Each structure stands twice: as C-alpha cells, then as structure tokens.
Amino acid sequence: MGVQDSPTLITSVQRAFRLLEVVSAHENGAPAKQLARETGLHLPTAYHLLRTLVHDGYVRKLPDGGFVLGDKLQALRTTGSGQTLLSRVRPTLAALRDEFTAAAYLTFYEEGEIRVAEIVDGPRAPRVDLWVGFEDAGHATALGKSVLRELDDEARKEYLSRHHLVDLTPRTITSSPELLRRIDSSPVAPAVTDLEEYALGTVCVAVPVYSGGTLGSLGVSLPAGRLSRLPEIRERLLPTATRVTRNLSFTI
C-alpha cells in the first residue's frame, strides 16, 4: 500500500513526517520528483507538502530546485538537546528540594541575561513568587549574584550598564559599587546569599555551575524563619553543583 492510500485521519501528518525523513537523507538536497518517488507520494501531493514545509521553515528550497532541511528543525533539535540536558539534573534538584524542603532553582547566563532554566518545587516547598523577572532582578537574587560574581570585570560592567538596580525591598542593594563589593567579599564564597533582597520573607543561597562553557547558578530558597539552615544548605550545594556541572557537560 502506498503512503497516499493509508486511510487514517492523520495521513497528512504521516506524509509530512515521511517527507522530512527522506529530505534529511539528502544532505545536498533532492528535487521534488525524486522525493515524491522515494516517499511513494503523488507528485502534486509532494509539491503541496513541500510548499507548506518551506513556508513554515522546516524545509528550505535551494536555488537549483532541490530541498534540504530548514532552520526550524535545527532549532527544534537544539531545544530538544537542552531539554535532554535538563532531564539529567532534575532528579538532583528534586533531591535538594526533598532534603531541605526548599524549592531548587537552576539558571544560566545566556545572551547577556540571567535566565531561569528550571525550578523544582512542591506543595511543601513552594517557589518564591517571581513577581519580577530574574532578567530584571539579577542584583537582588542569590542566583543572579552568583553569576555576577563569576563574570570578569568587563562582563560585569556591561551587564550592570544595561540593568537598573531596582529597589525591590528595603534590603535590596541598589548601588553597583556596593553590590560588587559584597559579592566579592561574600563570607560564604563561592556561594552568595539573598537575605530578603528579592522578596520579604524569603532567603536564598546559590553557587555557580556550568553547562559546557555556559555559566549558571544553582540555588534554593526558603522562608526567612529558616535562615539558620543556610550554612548547612551551602555545604550541600557545593558538591551538588559539581555533579550538576558534570552532568550538564556530557555530550549528547
């Protein structure tokens, strides 16, 4: 039975996937007639699907008329690779959450911004209310300050030149020189803390991690009433960060 004869409601999807499989087998491209023949599709059907796939970026038409995979698929592969990497460290973050009954966070410094990649929380370990995005609050979070501590002077200045140090709570540091002084003189280095600087009633401790050459941070947040546990959590975070870095740096 040819592909076009399959009597199902998702035949068009099956045809498109089959077409993508065949296109991917031709690194230098293949014309529509060849693709139609190899997929078992009628030529008009192949042309119609190819036009749709080209329009949506999944296939690209070459000047000589051949077809190759498009940029959209590469983006999907990149996203999928990132999700695969994160799946390797979620159990570690969950273990932190369960051990300390505290939400665990993972961030990365990407394209000049500090971005949250993963949060593992639960009913007994709720995440902090992200009322201000981390991209605009790096100066007020342990996760953001951990990243800033690891950046060189030029990268720090560049970041701070683009981000106003917004006053989020009465404890927020809004002076760049003072912020850098405290980061560099952290008594628990390489860890840094956020003592109700992002949200009143919440404290956080974070340490640096890496995914290949990408800098990030690993941390946990908990109610300010449990501040006395921060030293214990910091000691646990340091070897955990080493393990997370190792898992994130494996080649997929």
Rank of each mutant, 00 (worst) to 15 (best):
V68T: 15
V120Q: 11
P63T: 10
T78L: 14
A137L: 02
L43S: 03
A75V: 09
L73K: 04
H139M: 00
R37A: 12
V89Y: 03
K72V: 11
Q34I: 12
D98L: 09
R18E: 01
A102K: 02
T45Q: 13
G70Q: 04
H55T: 13
F100K: 01
E27A: 13
T52W: 08
T11L: 13
G138L: 00
E110W: 08
K61F: 04
Y105D: 01
E110A: 11
A104N: 10
A142T: 01
D64I: 05
T52E: 13
L53M: 13
G122Q: 02
L143N: 07
V68D: 08
F17Q: 14
L69F: 03
A36Y: 09
T92L: 15
R127D: 02
E21L: 10
V13W: 08
R60E: 15
T11M: 05
G40N: 07
A75F: 04
A103G: 10
I114C: 05
S81R: 13
H48L: 12
D71L: 09
L85F: 11
G57H: 06
A104Q: 09
L76D: 12
A36T: 13
L20Q: 11
T79D: 13
R77L: 15
A102D: 04
E38D: 12
T39E: 03
I119H: 00
P44C: 12
L76P: 02
L53F: 10
Q14N: 05
T11K: 12
R18T: 00
A32P: 00
D121R: 07
R115Y: 02
R15K: 15
H55R: 14
K72Q: 15
Q14I: 04
P31W: 02
D129Q: 10
Q74V: 12
T101V: 05
V59N: 05
L143R: 02
L50E: 09
T78Y: 06
T52N: 09
E99M: 09
H42N: 07
L19K: 07
E21Y: 00
V59I: 14
T45E: 13
R18M: 01
Y47Q: 11
R127I: 01
G65V: 13
R51S: 15
G122D: 09
L20D: 04
L86W: 03
G29R: 10
R51H: 14
T141F: 01
L53T: 08
L130W: 05
G133D: 15
T45M: 06
Q74A: 14
V128D: 00
E135H: 04
E111C: 06
P63W: 05
L62E: 14
G40F: 05
N28M: 09
F108M: 08
R18A: 03
T79Q: 14
A125F: 06
T107I: 02
H55D: 15
F17H: 12
L76C: 08
L130P: 01
A46S: 11
